[in-house]
C-alpha cells in the first residue's frame, strides 16, 4: 500500500480511494485503466470533435487515445499537471503541431464534420477558422492597428480601407479594448500593458472571424486584475465563439468554463460539467489533482 491515511490510528481498514490525506501515486491500484475516460465525452451539438487521437513526438507518445467533443458556444477548459498533454491536444485542434517535424498525429479530429487532418483541409484555412491565443502575450512588433488588420489583410477579408477599419474597430470592441486604445492605434502594440496585450491578441484572433478560439494558458503571464478582465472577456465571447482553454489555474477553469477535461500523462482521465468536476470528481486522479494531493 503506497498510501497513508491520517486516520490510520483510528481505523486502518475502512478507507476508500481518494481518501483525504492520501496522495494518489503513479501505478497505485487506484489508477483506473488509462484508456477509459470517466464522464461523457460527447455533446449534442459538437463544434469540434476528436476521436481516438494519438500524438507522438518521434517514438514518445504524448497523447493517448483521446476522444473529446467541443460543443457549440461553450467554454471547455483542459486542466492537468505539466506534461499531461493538454497543450499538445489543444495544438492538434488547429494543427499547430504541424510546425514540429517530429510530431505525428493519429486519429480523427473534425471541425463541423470536416476532418481537419484530411488532405482537402488546408492548415492555413483551418487556422483562420480555429484561432489561437498563446501563453505569453505576443503582439507583432507593429502598431495596434496593424496587429488586428494583419489577419484580415492576408486573408483578403476586407475589400476596402473602410471595411478594414471597421473590422479593426469591432474586433477591438469585442475584446473590450477599443476605448482604451482608440486614440493610439498607430502606437506599437508591444507598448500596451500585459493584460492589454493579451486582449489585443484575442482581438487579433477575433478579427479573422474564427469559429473556435483556442487559448493556451492565456493568463499565466498576467496579474490578477488583468486575469479577471480576460476571464470576463472569455465569458462574454462565449455568446459568439466556441472556446477551448488550457489553464494551470483550477480556479480559472472553474470560473470560465462550462465543461472541464482533466488530462493525466497523455490520457483524458475525466471530462464533465465544470460544476461536477470541481465539487465531486469521479476519478481518483482528478480528485487528487483538484484537491492538491498530486505529485
Amino acid at each position: 500500500m503506497s498510501k497513508a491515511n491520517i486516520y490510520a490510528i483510528e481505523n486502518p481498514v475502512t478507507h476508500q480511494p481518494g481518501w483525504i490525506g492520501s496522495r494518489v501515486q503513479e501505478g497505485s491500484e487506484n489508477t483506473a485503466s488509462p484508456y477509459a475516460t470517466v464522464g461523457n465525452i460527447a455533446v449534442p451539438n459538437p463544434r469540434m470533435s476528436a476521436r481516438s487521437v494519438n500524438v507522438f513526438y518521434d517514438e514518445k507518445q504524448a497523447i493517448n487515445n483521446v476522444s473529446l467533443d467541443i460543443g457549440l458556444n461553450e467554454v471547455i477548459s483542459m486542466i492537468g499537471p505539466s506534461g499531461c498533454g493538454k497543450s499538445t491536444f489543444l495544438r492538434c485542434l488547429n494543427r499547430m503541431n504541424d510546425t514540429i517535424d517530429i510530431c505525428r498525429v493519429e486519429g480523427e479530429i473534425t471541425l463541423q464534420d470536416e476532418n481537419i487532418y484530411s488532405k482537402s483541409m488546408d492548415a492555413v484555412l483551418l487556422r483562420a477558422r480555429v484561432g489561437m491565443v498563446f501563453q505569453k502575450p505576443n503582439p507583432f512588433p507593429k502598431s495596434i492597428y496593424d496587429n488586428i488588420a494583419y489577419g484580415p489583410k492576408i486573408h483578403g477579408l476586407a475589400r476596402s480601407r473602410s471595411e478594414l477599419n471597421e473590422i479593426v474597430e469591432t474586433s477591438l470592441a469585442k475584446a473590450g479594448l477599443w476605448d482604451e486604445v482608440k486614440d493610439r492605434l498607430t502606437k506599437p502594440g508591444t507598448g500596451l500593458s500585459g493584460g492589454q496585450q493579451q486582449r489585443l491578441c484575442i482581438a487579433r484572433a477575433i478579427a479573422v472571424s474564427p469559429e473556435v478560439i483556442l487559448m493556451d494558458e492565456p493568463c499565466s503571464a498576467l496579474d490578477p486584475i488583468a486575469t479577471a478582465r480576460v476571464e470576463e472577456l472569455i465569458d462574454e465571447l462565449r455568446q459568439n465563439y466556441t472556446i477551448a482553454i488550457v489553464t494551470h489555474s483550477m480556479q480559472q477553469a472553474a470560473r470560465v468554463s462550462q465543461r472541464t477535461a482533466y488530462f493525466h500523462l497523455g490520457n483524458l482521465v475525466e471530462v464533465g460539467e465544470t460544476n461536477d468536476i470541481f465539487t465531486n470528481p469521479k476519478h481518483p486522479l482528478t480528485e487528487a489533482y483538484i484537491t492538491g494531493r498530486f505529485g
Partner: peptide, 9 residues
C-alpha cells in the same frame, strides 16, 4: 504523502 501544502492537512 498528503496535501502538497502540508499545513492544509
Amino acid at each position: 504523502e498528503g496535501h502538497i501544502f502540508h499545513r492544509f492537512d
